[in-house]
């Protein structure tokens, strides 16, 4: 039996958790390749117009996987850290089943729909039972996977903090984008590459510790509902004073971001902010022009005598 994991959306959050779980259970799995133009084209054909770009990309990845494995793994997550998720994470399963109806694909569901410390384990338990595994196997696999995920995140957060605090002549740019945008080869990677080519040091907001960030996000908004947006907002609240500028990367048409970005621009007044909106368009000229002139502004600020 072979499980296919789409390299999209939550994969970029829980890669370690999922792969370690399957490894420990001794289940063979395959991960779809980095997003490329062929996947984007499939995605655009499969999706309805209203879905956001990351959701479209998910469909593209599932399309790639459909003849490569026995089961396609689809997560559905409703709560993280007791906070609500964006609707697309709840709708994923239904959306995928509806898009590929009539193709007789077999799906492996991972359904996390409760709050509380045991909720994640229960979701894995259900999946383990479905796969016909013994309790001892899936329970051990889950706790090992959880540990791997926690350490991975901790290590990543420490790494980012180091990058942030290390003095450097480069411009430090806080890149604010969801995990599935910044991690994607097609969406986030060109931004990071362009920033590096322009002599900047990108600091990725998403990599900072989630609990600390969500706590800190209350400084800027007490009522913001979405967990991942809280995370990013908190990173801005905590670290915006230590960077030279902020780049906000959004995919079109992201509902939560469209509101949160506006709020960030209104509340953070002391740093230059650039908002970039990505779609399936291919031309990188507009992107380069915008990033280039943004970095020019950062350089001007450094040259400028302090008033």
């Amino acid at each position: 039996m072979k499980v296919g994991i789409p390299r999209a959306l939550l994969y970029y959050k829980y890669e370690k958790l999922w792969t370690t779980f399957f490894d420990e259970c001794g289940i063979e799995y395959i991960i779809s390749p980095e997003t490329n133009k062929a996947i984007i084209n499939d995605a655009a054909n499969l999706a309805i117009d209203e879905t956001c770009l990351p959701t479209k990309i998910l469909l593209g990845h599932i399309n790639w996987l459909k003849n490569q494995c026995d089961y396609i793994f689809i997560p559905r997550v409703e709560f993280v850290y007791r906070a609500q998720m964006c609707t697309k994470f709840m709708a994923q399963i239904d959306l995928v089943m509806n898009t590929f109806r009539g193709e007789h694909l077999k799906f492996l569901f991972y359904n996390l729909y409760k709050k509380g410390p045991k909720a994640e384990y229960k979701a894995f338990k259900k999946m383990g039972k479905y796969l016909g595994l013994k309790k001892s196997v899936y329970k051990y696999a889950y706790y090992t996977a959880k540990q791997a995920q926690v350490y991975y995140e901790m290590f990543r957060a420490q790494n980012q903090l180091q990058l942030l605090q290390q003095p450097t002549p480069q411009n430090k740019v806080l890149v604010v984008a969801h995990a599935y945008n910044i991690g994607d080869k097609f969406v986030g990677e060109p931004i990071l590459r362009t920033l590096k080519n322009l002599g900047c040091r990108p600091i990725i907001a998403e990599y900072f510790d989630a609990r600390e960030c969500i706590q800190a996000s209350k400084q800027l908004s007490r009522t913001l509902p979405w967990a991942y947006n809280q995370h990013l907002l908190g990173a801005i609240a905590l670290y915006h004073e230590q960077v030279d500028g902020i780049v906000i990367l959004t995919t079109f048409p992201c509902g939560p971001d469209s509101m949160v970005n506006e709020m960030i621009v209104r509340k953070i007044k002391d740093k230059p902010i650039l908002t970039l909106t990505m779609d399936t368009q291919d031309g990188s000229a507009g992107l380069e022009t915008r990033l280039e002139s943004f970095v020019d502004i950062l350089n001007f600020q450094k040259e400028r005598p302090h008033a």
């Binding site: 230059p272 779609d279 368009q281 002139s293 502004i297 001007f300 600020q301």
Partner: peptide
């Protein structure tokens, strides 16, 4: 501001 560019915006698509 004082001869230095501090901010810009450009039309999108």
């Amino acid at each position: 501001e004082n001869g230095f560019v501090v901010d810009y915006a450009m039309n999108t698509l």
